[in-house]
Every structure is written in C-alpha cells, then in structure tokens.
C-alpha cells in the first residue's frame, strides 16, 4: 500500500491539521487547516489506488465546500466569535469533561481492537486492491450499473438542497423588502 515512513509523515500532518482546526482561535485559520487535512487525505487516496476519488476530494471539498465556509465566515465576519478556552460555566464544564472522556473511550476502544490483532486478514487477497481498475470508466460503470438508484436519489437530494438554499435566501430578501 504505502511505506510506513511516508504514511507516518502524512498521518502526522493530517492529525496536526485536524488538531489545528479544532484549537484555532480564528475560524479562517480553522478552515485553512481543514483544507490541509483534506489535501493530505487526498494524497492518501492516491496512495490507495483511488485517483478519481482523490481528485473529486480536492475539487469538491477543498475547491467548493471550504470555499463556501470561507465565504460565509467573511460574509458574517464570524472569524473571532469566541475562543474555545473561554470561561467555563456550570453545565458546560460537565459537557466538556464528559465529551473528552467519551473521546478517550473511543480512541481507547480502537487501540484495544488494534492491539488485539486488528482486522482479521486471513483469506483476504490484499494484492487485489493494487491492481484494481479504479479508473473513472470503471467507477462510472459501477455507479451507473449497480448503484443507479442511489445515484438518482442523490440527484434528487441535490435538487432538494438547491431548493432549500434558495428558499432560505429568498424569504430573507422579502423580509427586508417589507421592512
């Protein structure tokens, strides 16, 4: 799949970027860390023999979704809403500690499973993936043959999203007109 050293380097970048997003005081910086994370993951996809997904990841996530985030942040001027280390009040403290505790449990479970031996790899031909035809053609055929119904449903979903966004934008404008 990939040599451990580049893997660990990339993984370190990915985790650092994720943490940067989590801890950044400035929402724009959070967004930039998120882009870094996405691009690292895209490189993982390339290494995992998924070039199409890698390119889609960059185009959609980095090129569209995060730009949208930045757009909204700049529109609202919301980059410095409140830092994460503000004063902590009663119920919030409970929330925070519970959350961190549960997160630790989650990582702990994963670590436990991996030390138990991880995924059972007997009988799985791990070389098949390297020669798997993941070209856009193959992916397209899979999409339009086995997954044609989900594909249509996704189209409907996107249509619904467009309608929803238009309605949100629209009602506001009319409200302003009335005012």
């Amino acid at each position: 799949m990939i040599h451990p050293i580049p893997f660990l380097l990339l993984a370190a970048v990915a985790v650092a970027a994720a943490l940067g997003m989590l801890l950044s005081h400035n929402a724009v910086h959070s967004a930039l860390y998120l882009v870094l994370n996405f691009i690292t993951v895209a490189i993982f996809y390339l290494a995992l023999n998924a070039p199409f997904i890698a390119m889609v990841q960059v185009t959609v996530y980095a090129g569209a979704i995060v730009v949208l985030f930045l757009f909204v942040i700049m529109l609202l001027g919301a980059e410095r809403l409140r830092s994460p280390v503000d004063e902590v009040r009663g119920p919030e403290r409970f929330h925070r500690y519970t959350a961190i505790l549960l997160a630790l449990v989650l990582v702990g479970v994963a670590a436990y499973l991996l030390f138990q031996g991880g995924v059972d790899m007997t009988g799985v031909d791990t070389t098949a993936g390297a020669t798997l035809d993941a070209s856009p053609q193959a992916l397209g055929l899979a999409l339009f043959q086995s997954y044609v119904f989900p594909f249509q449903v996704t189209g409907v979903l996107l249509l619904a999203a467009i309608a929803g966004v238009v309605i949100f934008g629209h009602t506001k404008k009319r409200g302003e007109d009335n005012a």
């Binding site: 998924a50 997904i53 098949a128 798997l132």
Partner: peptide, 21 residues
C-alpha cells in the same frame, strides 16, 4: 476498498462527498 479489492467503497465515498456538499 483497497484492502478487499472492491470498487464499492469508492462508489460510497462518491455518494458521501455529494451528500456532504
């Protein structure tokens, strides 16, 4: 998908990305 040598995982990712957008 890479581990099992099947394309379905990548197809699902495609859907996830669409839904995420």
């Amino acid at each position: 998908a890479r581990h099992l040598g099947q394309l379905d995982g990548q197809v699902l990712v495609f859907f996830v990305i669409t839904v995420a957008a």
